[in-house]
C-alpha cells in the first residue's frame, strides 16, 4: 500500500462501472448474453486500469510512461476490428441484413466507449490525488453523465416526419405513395404483399437530412431495426418478400416498404423513429461555403 493505491483502485472501479453502464442489451440484441458481455467488461477493466495508472505516472514525472496509452489505442482499435468481423460474419445469416454502415457504426461505438472509460478512470484518479475522494466522486459522476450523453446520438424520428401509407399496385409495380418500390409479377404474391405489407413515407425536415436518409447504409439500418422489432414475413429463397426502401428523386422523401409480423401502425412508426442516425450517413450540405454564398 502506498499513497497511490486507493486512488488507482478508485479509478479502476469507477471506469469499470462506467463500462458496465454503457453496455446495454436492447432490441439490437448485441452484445448478447454472458460471454459477449464478459469480453467487454474485461476490456473495460483494462481500459480503466490504463486511465488510472496514467495519473501517478505523470505525478512522478515519469512522462515516458504515458506512451503506453498509445498501446491502449492500438488495443481498442483491435476491439473495433473484432466487432466488425463478428458482425459481418453473422450478417449473411440475417433475414434482413444490418448492412456495412450499421456494423461500422456499432464497431465505432465499442471503440469510443473504451476511451470514455479511460477518461472516467483518469479524471477519478486525478481528482482523488489533487483534492480528495469526494471531489473524485463529483468528477466521476460528471464523467458518467457525459458518457451517457455521448452514447446516445440522434434518431430518425428527430430528422424526418413519418407517415403511414397503404402500399398499392399499379399493374405489376408496387408503390408506396407515389414511390416505386419493385415489380411483382404473380397475382398471389401481390395479394400476400397487400395483406401483410406496410408502407411508410419519411419526409425530411431539412436539406441536410435529404442526403442522410438517402444513404444506402442508413436505409438498410431502418429496415433491419424495423424487421428485428416487428418480425419479418419472409424466409430464405423468397426474394419477392424482401423489405425495401426507395427514394423519390424529386423531393428526397423515402418510401419504406416492410412486411412485418406485428402490423401495428403506431408501434411501427415509433420503431422507425427510434432507429439511430448513423454517424457515417450524416451529411451537412448547409455548412458548405458554396451553399452559403448562394443563400446570401
Amino acid at each position: 500500500m502506498n499513497e497511490y493505491t486507493m486512488p488507482i483502485v478508485f479509478g479502476v472501479v469507477l471506469g469499470t462501472i462506467a463500462r458496465i453502464l454503457m453496455l446495454r442489451t436492447d432490441y439490437r440484441q448485441y452484445p448478447t448474453y454472458l460471454h459477449g458481455k464478459i469480453i467487454h467488461v474485461a476490456l473495460g477493466f483494462i481500459a480503466a486500469s490504463l486511465g488510472a495508472v496514467a495519473v501517478p505516472a505523470l505525478m512522478e514525472l515519469n512522462f515516458t510512461a504515458v506512451t503506453f496509452l498509445t498501446v491502449a489505442a492500438t488495443q481498442f482499435r483491435e476491439v473495433r476490428n473484432m466487432e466488425r468481423n463478428t458482425l459481418t460474419e453473422i450478417d449473411s445469416y440475417e433475414l434482413v441484413s444490418r448492412g456495412k454502415a450499421y456494423i461500422e457504426g456499432i464497431a465505432i461505438s465499442f471503440e469510443s466507449r473504451n476511451y470514455l472509460v479511460i477518461l472516467t478512470a483518469f479524471i477519478g484518479t486525478l481528482f482523488y490525488l489533487i483534492w480528495n475522494v469526494y471531489m473524485a466522486f463529483v468528477g466521476a459522476i460528471i464523467c458518467l453523465v457525459i458518457s451517457k450523453v455521448l452514447q446516445s446520438g440522434s434518431t430518425i424520428g428527430d430528422i424526418v416526419d413519418i407517415e403511414y401509407v397503404d402500399p398499392h399496385f399499379d399493374g405489376a409495380g408496387l408503390y408506396v405513395d407515389n414511390i416505386y418500390i419493385m415489380n411483382i409479377g404473380l397475382p398471389e404474391r401481390q395479394e400476400e404483399i397487400l395483406k401483410y405489407g406496410m408502407g411508410f413515407v419519411l419526409k425530411p425536415k431539412n436539406i441536410n437530412v435529404v442526403n442522410t436518409i438517402a444513404h444506402l447504409g442508413q436505409r438498410q439500418a431502418i429496415l433491419h431495426d424495423a424487421s428485428v422489432s416487428l418480425g419479418v414475413f419472409r424466409d430464405s429463397g423468397t426474394p419477392a418478400l424482401v423489405p425495401l426502401i426507395k427514394r423519390d428523386l424529386d423531393d428526397g422523401r423515402i418510401g419504406v416498404f416492410i412486411l412485418p409480423q406485428i402490423r401495428d401502425k403506431e408501434k411501427a412508426k415509433k420503431i422507425i423513429g427510434a432507429v439511430p442516425v448513423l454517424e457515417t450517413a450524416i451529411r451537412m450540405p448547409s455548412r458548405s461555403d458554396a451553399q452559403n454564398k448562394e443563400i446570401k
Binding site: G171, A172, M182, N183, I184, G185, L186, P187, E188, R189, S236, G237, T238, P239, A240
Partner: peptide, 17 residues
C-alpha cells in the same frame, strides 16, 4: 402464372411481369 410461381420458388428469384 403457375409456371412462374414454381420457377420463382425453385430458382430463388423474383417473378417480374
Amino acid at each position: 402464372q403457375k409456371t412462374a410461381a414454381n420457377l420463382e420458388a425453385i430458382l430463388d428469384g423474383i417473378a417480374h411481369a
